[in-house]
């Protein structure tokens, strides 16, 4: 328990170290989620436009 406390405290610099890791995590995960979501919505749009042959159109572009 005590070592967890020390780990969290980071030698007194915990409130600089953890926000740094936090903001990196938020931005990287956020960017990933946003990229993925926009891919899915583009794919959904494509499927709506060409319901049956969404795969066939691959070679035309």
């Amino acid at each position: 328990m005590e070592s967890l406390q020390a780990f969290w405290d980071m030698g007194g610099y915990g409130h600089f170290v953890w926000p740094a890791y936090g903001v990196v995590a938020v931005v990287l995960i956020g960017l990933f989620v946003e990229s993925r979501r926009s891919l899915k919505s583009a794919e959904a749009e494509l499927a709506a436009l060409a319901p049956s042959k969404a795969e066939d159109t691959d070679d035309e572009t």
């Binding site: 990229s35 794919e43 749009e45």
Partner: peptide, 14 residues
């Protein structure tokens, strides 16, 4: 992921 998105979006536009 993002390139796949761009390719798909181009197809949609076409």
């Amino acid at each position: 992921i993002r390139i796949r998105r761009e390719v798909t979006a181009n197809k949609v536009r076409a």
